[in-house]
């Protein structure tokens, strides 16, 4: 079950891939983006397998252009089918997605997840706070940072 939502963006080319199985969290994330006026297109993958299909243009996304990578991937860890860490591992193992910014956005504050995430090449690790104000602040800030301030290699080069 996919939940695609087109939003008005100040930079239409910058797509956000949100890998999240919990629809509530998807809703809250999108709400936080809105709150911070982040209008980029958000593609939602509800499990790891779908995220990989999207990124490598396989399965449902076979017709997609592989060169058209999202600006950032927001990756939950605990996912059906293929879990978040494995998705990360696969991304980093592929030349095409090696430098793709990945932010782990998870409920877990387990030390080992954090360490493993960074070890596999995550660019950032953000724990989802329970309190919504904090949550929306965290998501909003990371959107601003990665979408507006950060320069990715492919853009630079």
């Amino acid at each position: 079950m996919t939940n695609q939502q087109s939003v008005v963006s100040n930079s239409q080319s910058k797509v956000v891939l949100l890998v999240e199985d919990n629809p509530d969290d998807v809703e809250l994330t999108l709400r936080a983006f809105r709150k911070y006026n982040i209008m980029n297109e958000v593609v939602v993958a509800s499990d790891g397998a779908e995220a990989l299909d999207y990124l490598f243009c396989t399965g449902r996304y076979a017709s997609r252009d592989t060169n058209n990578l999202p600006e950032i991937v927001l990756l939950d860890l605990k996912l059906p089918k293929v879990d978040g860490l494995e998705v990360l591992q696969r991304l980093r193992a592929d030349e095409r997605t090696k430098h793709l910014p990945v932010v782990i956005l998870t409920s877990s504050n387990e030390e080992r997840d954090l360490i493993k995430g960074y070890k596999l090449g995550a660019n950032s690790y953000v724990q989802k706070p329970v309190e919504f104000t904090q949550f929306s602040e965290a998501v909003g800030r990371l959107g601003i940072y990665w979408l507006l301030l950060n320069k990715s290699p492919k853009k630079g080069g």
């Binding site: 509530d24 409920s107 504050n109 387990e110 919504f132």
Partner: peptide, 18 residues
């Protein structure tokens, strides 16, 4: 617990706020 118990709480809190 760390992962799953927190998610519904976040929903409760988040949608209350909404």
């Amino acid at each position: 617990v760390s992962h799953d118990l927190r998610a519904p709480l976040r929903s409760i809190n988040g949608f209350c706020k909404a």
